[in-house]
Nucleic acid binder design. Structure first.
Lengths: 214, 214, 214, 214
DNA sequence: CATGAATGAGGTTTCATTCAT
DNA sequence: TATGAATGAAACCTCATTCAT
């Protein structure tokens, strides 16, 4: 439970439960109608509470953004941890494939939140925006790191590791943001496989162009 | 001038001028605070009119979205025309490079509008959303078409032409949406060159992996 | 309580109470300054609510017209029922006198509402206007019916029953609309008696011109 | 031309012409949408002027009410003059019939204006309302006067001459206000004849109940 | 004389939030 | 803990009116 948001309840369990209820409903509505286009009444209605009651669990509408963000960050850092762990365990090629898979699955599990953060970021308050960007940078660093390591070992040949890392992140976000279109054509696993192939092609494994493709 | 939006002015020149003024200011504000988070007063203040006067040139706030969209579409279809023209004139590889370059420059010339449309699309009214998606689909088709042609002639080897086309579009949008970050690291020309290389690598020109890279 | 108008309150009693409060104040203001000349703030001020709170009980300003109308219609149909009942019980002459008396008292009990509806009718939305006219037609039919019956039985001699019925209705409305002038000269009972005499004189009871006058 | 309303024009002819144009259009709109529901733009549009230009001929929107009223008064006093003249020339019965006929035709010739004044009167400024009521009182006095004279000479037997006079006025106004309904059933001449008969029946010409009916 | 552009004031309505219960 | 009533502030938009041309 975020300790930084005022509560009138002392029952942590309940606070947790209500907040997740609020966030779940709010995110959906925000994605449909925008943050300012969604009223507290809308949210209250969607999560079967009264709007007055919502204020027992958050201080104000803006807190919902923070909660969504924090939820996303927990997942993000879990992804980062697991990906880095993989890098220790596996060779760079496998580590990259592993990281991509983890990342895309992480995104897929939080599509609504990712979409909201991605779309809304420009209009968030400065401190919130900074935090979101920080996490995105940390995620990007995971990939950049793997790419650098691959280059150092001669296994990859990349020019512009940072940008390729950015691209990978964007492909993930694209899955969330454009899911309306993509979701009809691919499952997350197919999407992961095809995009992984494309990425691997870009790291220019001369002479062994296809062995890594399943 | 969009003939479909009510005006109380009869001076076409002025209407054009005021509308572009309105749009220019509005887009910036929308990107900063979101559509619903931006008030007509904000816009009026930004473009040094009274909010009452704005209503001499548009019917309502929603029209601003339409105007932004229409402006974007004119540019989009110009890109489509030029890219298709290139495809007739040039070989597929050059045609692809040409299309990418045109597309990225098109995006760069309308970054604010693209960002707004891209971010806000989910919350637009159905008819507007449909139009925006239609144009995006037409843009995507340009790339898909080139890729198919290259595959047919044996010059490309792509699996998943449609998705690669989607990716290219997304890379363009990324330049607009993440310009805050990317703009500091690359000029549009550098960005174009690096991404073009990455894309070309993905079309798997076996045996001639680098001749096309400048 | 009108079930067709949106409320954010769940307390029916309160809704009833607030709505009647709103209507009572609104009608007075409408008659003084016209519908469009009266602002929601005016109304709110008059009934000691905030204008925002009014919207907990009605959907919009137009609903006030509907509520006024519906209140009037309940009374109108009560008059119609009672008058028709009288026609079954009494001879035509007594039935006519009874109906006039009932009608005038009905009008007197809702003077403000009648005045508003009568004056404003031309500018109401089509559906509302149609309803008001329908009720007025039903009221007129009551008198026309009595007059026809009297003619059939030979007790009355009227040429133009329908117009005489219209006239009776108008005399009633006149009591409401011109009450500023008439109210100083007559009580409703006096007004009723004098007008009843005039009406009875018009039905031409040959040979017995005065026996029915008290 | 009303000398009391500011003009920027010195061409009396033009002022007269423009004002009558304005009034003619405004009255129609007022009756359809109410005074406050009609915008200057509406009026300007209806009389093919610009709203700015209207202000060359009147000081403000309220002046239109005054102009309508003044136009009506000219006609009213013409009616009063002619009716009184008739009373000198004719016997009371003929004078009454003459006055009714004149009055109804007067109303018919200015239906829109009468309707507007009748409906709007309650919301006019005090001085305007006073003037309208004054004229109505003068009109009423014409009939009251005839009725008194007829009673004095023994030709009439009326109890409540003033109220009967009021009724006659109301019947005339009814022709204007309810013309939508009545106009379909009667011409003004038929309406006049039937109502005249009804009125004459009320003055109780014992023994000669019908000789005056055509 | 007539016009089009412009605006301050004010209209209706919504909303985030509070508070007594 | 949860609720329903209430509200100040602000949103979009319209209008009567002015003024330079």
């Amino acid at each position: 439970m975020s300790k930084n948001i005022r509560t009138y309840s002392t029952n942590e369990k309940l606070v947790e439960e209500r907040r997740s209820q609020i966030i779940r409903c709010a995110v959906k509505l925000f994605n449909k109608k925008g943050f300012d286009g969604t009223s507290m009444r809308d949210i209250a209605h969607a999560c079967k509470m009264t709007s007055a009651n919502i204020y027992n669990y958050i201080e104000g509408k803006d807190d919902i953004i923070r909660l969504i963000m924090e939820g996303g960050h927990v997942r993000s850092y879990q992804f980062i941890r697991e990906a880095n762990e993989g890098l220790e365990r596996l060779g760079v090629i496998e580590a990259l494939k592993n990281a991509i898979s983890l990342f895309f699955r992480h995104i897929d599990g939080a599509r609504a939140g990712v979409t909201f953060l991605y779309r809304g970021i420009a209009s968030f308050r400065d401190d919130i925006r900074a935090q979101v960007l920080k996490v995105e940078a940390d995620e990007t660093a995971v990939f950049e790191n793997i790419l650098h390591k691959g280059c150092a070992s001669g296994e990859f040949e990349v020019n512009g590791a940072r940008l390729l890392a950015d691209n990978i992140i964007s492909l993930g976000q694209m899955w969330a943001v454009k899911h309306g279109m993509l979701g009809g054509r691919y499952t997350i696993d197919e999407y992961t496989r095809v995009q992984t192939n494309s990425i691997l092609r870009q790291i220019q494994l001369n002479g062994k162009p296809d062995y890594y493709l399943k």
